[in-house]
Design a binder for these strands. Structure first.
Length: 336
DNA sequence: CCTTTTAA
DNA sequence: TTAAAAGGG
């Protein structure tokens, strides 16, 4: 997923607290996939209410949002819109992976394997209902969100040029879309599963400043986009055998991606369109505002409709009320 | 993933 | 008091 340019990215360890008093746009689909694949029971099934609706995402969004607010971070959730046709290959590839995972799951069940989490976790669908539930919860919590015309990452990145301080996302693509600052690993509990294995390692929240990445590597934004494309993005496959470091060296030597491709005698389909998509993606201007949380509505939605524990939710509603106050205040301060 | 409970 | 395990919906 995304583009792997981690080897040339300069990142700084941080904490939620250190990033307080800022507003961040959130690549919501990125978070939703994370939640759907990780918030699971021991047998691998997601959390579900008594009607069989998946609730893992509601659980995650509720608690994570409150964590952010408690650390004085103001989140603005950004949802994906219509994917670009450039992404078709990636989308069908992911579909294929899920079909494969389904078959492997069936086989594991037949073998009588107990821990099915690694199989289930690869079969996640963000359904319209999941999106609508998430938006409903955010509305009740008084947290703003925006529907991107196309890529959520692009919209969230664009917002860092306007009225937010950074993007919360795991994907480096945000840097190609020009995000001034990217925040990764913004989970409170830095436990991350090593892919395919049942091992957890600790990861720490980190931030990346685009200008620093550019100056440290002595490149410009166009060259960074070129490096991303050489390595591979959601919109193209990338050149086999070229990782971030090799791409960086080539781009610096040849000047730009077209010269690099001429030199190595390779071609990238739709190159001009892809470059243009990173530089001028479809985005909208959006004035967000924080509202007062409707605690009754949250309680009804989570507890009555989706079987959350009333006691636990009530405990956290107090914190939400208190900490969203600060966000509401921020709006008054900055616009009046 | 995040919180709560339990074991150390 | 802290870390690991279990539970959550």
């Amino acid at each position: 997923m995304g583009t792997d340019i981690s080897d040339i990215v300069v990142s700084h360890e941080t904490s939620l607290k250190d990033q307080g008093n800022q507003t961040f746009s959130i690549d919501t689909y990125n978070i939703l996939y994370q939640l759907l694949s990780n918030v699971r029971q021991y047998d691998g099934m997601p959390l579900m209410d008594s009607h069989g609706n998946v609730t893992s995402h509601l659980y995650g969004i509720f608690y994570r949002t409150i964590n952010l607010l408690e650390n004085k971070i103001r989140p603005v959730y950004v949802f994906d819109g219509k994917p670009s046709p450039l992404k078709n290959r990636t989308i069908s590839e992911r579909q294929l992976m899920k079909e494969k995972a389904k078959v492997e799951l069936e086989e594991a069940i037949e073998r009588g394997e107990e821990d099915l989490r690694q199989y289930y976790s690869r079969i996640n669908y963000i359904t319209p209902q999941i999106v609508n539930d998430t938006k409903k919860l955010l509305d009740y919590m008084g947290i703003p969100y925006v529907d991107a015309p196309s890529e959520g990452e692009a919209q969230a990145s664009y917002m860092t040029r306007k009225n937010v301080d950074g993007v919360i996302s795991q994907d480096y693509d945000c840097l190609l879309f020009g995000a001034r600052k990217v925040l990764r690993n913004f989970a409170i509990y830095g436990r991350r599963k090593v892919p395919r294995k049942n091992i957890y390692k600790t990861v720490y929240p980190e931030y990346i400043i685009l200008d620093e990445v550019l100056s440290a590597n002595q490149i410009n934004q166009d060259q960074l986009i070129g490096i991303g494309i050489l390595v591979g993005t959601d919109f193209n496959e990338g050149i086999k055998g070229i990782g971030a470091k090799k791409a960086l060296a080539l781009i610096k030597k040849e000047g730009d991606i077209k010269a690099v491709l001429r030199r190595i005698g390779k071609d990238i389909e739709n190159l001009d369109e892809i470059i243009d998509f990173f530089k001028n993606p479809p985005v909208v201007d959006y004035d967000f505002r924080f509202g007062k949380p409707d605690t009754d509505a949250i309680e009804h939605f989570l507890c009555d409709e989706h079987d959350f524990s009333r006691e636990r939710i009530r405990d956290h509603l107090e914190s939400l009320k208190k900490n969203n106050q600060a966000s509401t205040q921020f709006r008054l301060d900055s616009f009046d």
